[in-house]
Design a protein around this nucleic acid. Sequence first.
DNA 1: CGTCTATTTGAATGTACTCAAAAGCGGTGG
DNA 2: CCACCGCTTTTGAGTACATTCAAATAGACG
Lengths: 196, 196
Amino acid sequence: MHSAFILQNIGRHISLNKEEEAHFMAQLQEKLVPKKTFLQREGNLCRNIYYVNSGTLRAFFTDKTGRESTIMFAIAGWWITDMFCFINRQPAMLQLEALEDSQVYQLSRDDWESLLNDLPVFEKYFRILMQNAYTREQLRIIQNLSIPAEERYHNFLNKYPLVAKQVTQKQIASYLGITPEFLSALRSKKNRKTIS
Amino acid sequence: MHSAFILQNIGRHISLNKEEEAHFMAQLQEKLVPKKTFLQREGNLCRNIYYVNSGTLRAFFTDKTGRESTIMFAIAGWWITDMFCFINRQPAMLQLEALEDSQVYQLSRDDWESLLNDLPVFEKYFRILMQNAYTREQLRIIQNLSIPAEERYHNFLNKYPLVAKQVTQKQIASYLGITPEFLSALRSKKNRKTIS
DNA sequence: CGTCTATTTGAATGTACTCAAAAGCGGTGG
DNA sequence: CCACCGCTTTTGAGTACATTCAAATAGACG
């Protein structure tokens, strides 16, 4: 049963009694997201945050020229949304797309706020989640600023091996901030080195 | 009196009674940081988080080649630390430097943890801080990935006008991820446009 | 005033991009 | 099951953005 997993996951950070667990689970709405469908489209009000039970999701930004930048991937155990727009009840800048058939729990902005009020222990849980997200993004910025694309690519493969298996090179390139052509060139350069 | 400011600042997010305010203030240690001195050096255990009362601080990363990347600036009203290493009680990757004579409140890792336990309302406060920090870094990543250096420079000037007044071009360049020479070239290009 | 660092300028170089075309791969329908 | 379609990946040539290195100029500070 899936609900066991999310409670187990939360249990690594905070302790809940049976009532609290039930109260929390009651707020969640299970959703199936077929491959290539969107949980969130750009411009629509960002109403929900999602916990991934299974599958793979991608959040990406599209600039005026149509170029996509992948902001994050999410696999089982991750929460994903357009956090800025979720918090501030604004139209989403990001789109959320299923990269394969996925199953998520949906939690609405209002229910999230109620949850934090009703069960203050969730303030701690989300404080830890936000703190992890912050430090993760900061490490990403440090890397983007200080190391070249080739090394960032290998770091990505090492840090997110499960994600790397599920996504295309094009998507990895858009996460690293390079073109798919250039990523391809890096890879073949590496192969030539390895072979010779 | 400075303590009024920090309490006022916190009061924008959570409500504290007089006892809680006193308990919180008792954890803080006031520190003067003269210009060009370091609050935190790379490799030292990152023991503290700092709230800036006055002045300007900079957090930066130094790579193997000696190149500096500015991770953040902090002026009055901001908290600053090497968050990843603070949370995980690790040697700092970042250095914290005063760009002018500054005055800060220091809160140690242990006292921070006690504060969260003793006054759970601070879980909410730091949840909001972490959430703001996360969304800020995510917007920065989106910009770094999707827009060219020249536009990022102007966005920086618009977003952080007070910071821009206090820091050198070299430091702004290292925040944007470009060399000072290239920033200088962008600026003179802009001037030529404006003049002609 | 002299020293130190920041900023500017320019030339040569390198990293990454654009555009175009070919090859590979997966899914779908006949 | 095979043929075709669309998308991803590869490859290559030409280009643009950004860097490095060097040197001159300007500013800040004791």
